[in-house]
């Protein structure tokens, strides 16, 4: 891939005592790319992602995220990324508008900007008229879509999505991916982990982690050719079977 690199990891490693959670991973992600970060439970995805988000310091190796060093500039990284976790991450006892206000506010958006963004976002999700109802009353699919749009409300360079579509029905997942494509076309890089292999096929490129290493990294089409499989599911199973580590 050619383009401006927004994430570049070089032999990035994290050890907890004797245990090497992430083992010398090297990869680049370019601007606007949708990068799938795959791996079985316990393969080290979350640990790698935490290092890239500035939540955890690497043991070895180097990484630049949005142009900043993960060792020394993690506060700057935090300002330039968005994050949405597998766990539902909006406040159920606040209204839709209050949630947008809060998350936009802690990223330092001005009041005018927050108002403008809120209206845009509410219209995008067809939630006009409901903005004063509590998030608790929204169906799960809507909440996840809202959470995603809130995660990019401050126009970050990169958005990290940690299993964003867990427990969501197929139709809503489709809609969710439309939002992801939308963000990508606006130049926001999307770094996403998922368990759904059909979703992996939506990504521009995917990496597959096994036992803390990246064992495969290419576009879905190339990977399926290389592993002689008709789906990403087949590719993933061939690689994941090699794992020695117990999943948790």
């Amino acid at each position: 891939m050619i383009g401006e690199k927004v994430i570049s990891a070089e032999k990035l490693t994290k050890r907890f005592g004797d245990f090497t959670a992430v083992d010398h991973i090297t990869f680049d992600v370019v601007k606007g790319e949708i990068f799938g970060f795959l791996g079985a439970n316990g393969a080290g995805k979350t640990t790698a992602m935490r290092m890239l988000c500035g939540l955890s310091l690497p043991t070895l190796g180097s990484a630049m995220v949005a142009g900043f060093d993960v060792y020394r500039q993690n506060e700057l990284i935090k300002k330039n990324i968005g994050y949405m976790s597998q766990k539902f991450s909006l406040y159920e006892d606040l209204t839709i508008r209050e949630n947008i206000r809060f998350y936009a506010g802690i990223y330092g958006l001005t009041d005018d900007k927050i108002k403008e963004k809120s209206n845009l976002l509410i219209n995008r999700l067809n939630l006009a008229g409901q903005e004063k109802s509590l998030v608790r009353s929204l169906p799960l699919g809507w909440r996840q879509k809202l959470a995603f749009l809130i995660a990019i409300v401050h126009d970050p360079a990169i958005v990290f999505l940690d299993e964003p579509t867990g427990g969501v029905d197929p139709i809503t997942r489709r809609e969710f991916w439309e939002l992801i494509y939308d963000a990508s076309s606006k130049g926001i890089t999307v770094f996403v982990t998922t368990h759904y292999m059909d979703e992996a096929e939506y990504c521009h490129r995917v990496s597959i982690m096994v036992d803390g290493r990246i064992d495969a990294l290419d576009s879905p089409a190339n990977l399926m050719k290389e592993y002689a499989s008709s789906s990403m599911d087949g590719v993933f199973l061939q690689l994941a079977r090699k794992a020695l580590r117990m999943s948790d």
């Binding site: 994050y83 406040y91 802690i106």
Partner: peptide
């Protein structure tokens, strides 16, 4: 418990 702490910690808030 709600998972919101993670999101806040990733934000620029100290």
């Amino acid at each position: 418990e709600m998972g919101t702490m993670e999101v806040i910690l990733v934000s620029p808030l100290r």
